[in-house]
C-alpha cells in the first residue's frame, strides 16, 4: 500500500519537475544556452500567481471568489498569459542583445536575471514560505488506504495536457517544425525565410508560461519561498542532462528519475543517502554511456 502511495506522490512530483524541466529545454533548444534563471522564473511564477490571486479575488463577485475552485481555474490561464508576457520581456532584455555571443555569456546574463528575481521578490514579498490556491479546491479522496489529493491529480493532469500540447506543437504544427529547424541550424533556417528571432521569442514566452504553471502548481503542493529557485534549477538541469541534452521526452524521463530517487529510494534509505546515490548512479551511467543516459547514440565527435 505504502508503495502505491509512494508511486502516486512520485508521479505527481515527477510531473511537476517535468514541467520545470520542459521550460528549461525550450529555451535551451531555441538559443543553445542554459537559462540559469529558469528555477527563479518558476519561483516567480508562484509569486505572480499569489499576486494574481489577490487581484482576482478583489475583482470577482463574492460567490466566485469565496468558492475557491473558480479562483484556481481562472488563475492558471491568467498566470500563463502574464508569464508569457514576462517571457517576451526576458528575451528582449537578457537574450536579444547577446544573441551573437557564445552561450556562456547568455548563461551569465540569466544568472543576473535570477539574482534580480530572487532578491527583488524577497524584498517585495518577504522571505516567508507562501502557498497558492489549489486548482480545483483542496480536497482529497481515498481508494482503500491510498490517499490522492485533488492537487496531485491537478498536477498530473495539467502536466500531461501541457507536455502533450507542447509535443503536438513541436511535432505536428508548422510553427513547431520551424522551431525545430531553427534550433538545429539557425543560419539555414534564416536562409529559408524562417523568422528565427520571432520563433526564439515564442520559445521564451512558452518556456515562461510553463514556468508559471509549474510555479502555481508547486507552490500549492510544496510551498515556495523567494530562495526556492536554486534547488529547482538544479533539478531541471539534472533532468535535462540525464534525459539527453535538448530532448523533450528525455527531460520528462529525467524528471521522473529524480522524483523516483527523492521519493522511492529515499523511502528505502534516507534522503541524504538517496541524494548521494542519485549522483553516484549518474556518475556510473555517464561512465558507461558517455553520450548521456537516454541520449541517442551520437556518432563520432566529428
Amino acid at each position: 500500500m505504502a508503495a502505491l502511495q509512494l508511486l502516486v506522490n512520485g508521479l505527481a512530483l515527477g510531473a511537476a519537475y517535468g514541467l520545470v524541466a520542459l521550460g528549461f529545454v525550450l529555451v535551451l533548444n531555441a538559443t543553445g544556452a542554459v537559462n540559469f534563471a529558469h528555477g527563479d522564473w518558476v519561483m516567480a511564477g508562484g509569486f505572480v500567481a499569489i499576486a494574481l490571486t489577490g487581484a482576482l479575488t478583489s475583482i470577482l463577485p463574492v460567490e466566485f471568489a469565496g468558492g475557491g475552485a473558480w479562483v484556481g481555474l481562472l488563475l492558471l490561464p491568467t498566470t500563463l498569459v502574464v508569464m508569457a508576457g514576462l517571457g517576451l520581456i526576458f528575451c528582449r532584455v537578457a537574450y536579444t542583445p547577446l544573441k551573437n555571443q557564445p552561450p556562456v555569456t547568455i548563461f551569465v546574463s540569466t544568472i543576473a536575471v535570477g539574482l534580480i528575481l530572487s532578491n527583488g521578490i524577497n524584498a517585495q514579498f518577504g522571505g516567508a514560505p507562501r502557498s497558492t490556491p489549489p486548482l480545483f479546491g483542496a480536497g482529497q479522496f481515498s481508494l482503500g488506504d491510498l490517499v490522492i489529493s485533488h492537487q496531485s491529480l491537478s498536477i498530473l493532469g495539467t502536466a500531461i495536457i501541457l507536455i502533450g500540447g507542447l509535443g503536438w506543437l513541436m511535432e505536428r504544427t508548422q510553427t513547431g517544425r520551424r522551431m525545430r529547424a531553427a534550433a538545429q541550424d539557425p543560419e539555414m533556417a534564416r536562409a529559408m525565410g524562417i523568422r528565427v528571432d520571432r520563433l526564439i521569442a515564442v520559445s521564451f514566452a512558452l518556456a515562461l508560461a510553463l514556468a508559471g504553471a509549474a510555479g502555481l502548481l508547486l507552490a500549492n503542493q510544496f510551498f515556495i519561498t523567494p530562495s526556492s529557485g536554486g534547488a529547482l534549477m538544479l533539478k531541471a538541469y539534472l533532468a535535462v542532462t540525464i534525459g539527453g541534452w535538448g530532448s523533450l521526452r528525455g527531460a520528462v524521463a529525467g524528471a521522473m528519475l529524480i522524483a523516483f530517487f527523492e521519493i522511492g529510494v529515499a523511502s528505502l534509505t534516507s534522503q541524504p543517502v538517496a541524494e548521494g546515490l542519485l549522483y553516484l548512479v549518474l556518475f556510473a551511467i555517464l561512465f558507461a554511456r558517455p553520450q548521456g543516459v537516454f541520449g541517442e547514440a551520437i556518432g563520432h565527435r566529428a
Binding site: L234, Y237, I242, W245, Y279, L280, L286, F287, P290
Partner: peptide, 21 residues
C-alpha cells in the same frame, strides 16, 4: 580521469554531480 571523454554537457553534468557529492 573518468569524465574527460564526455562531451560538453555530460562533462558539466558529471562535474556537477561530483560537486554536489
Amino acid at each position: 580521469l573518468p569524465v574527460l571523454r564526455l562531451s560538453s554537457h555530460y562533462f558539466a553534468l558529471a562535474t556537477l554531480a561530483a560537486a554536489q557529492l
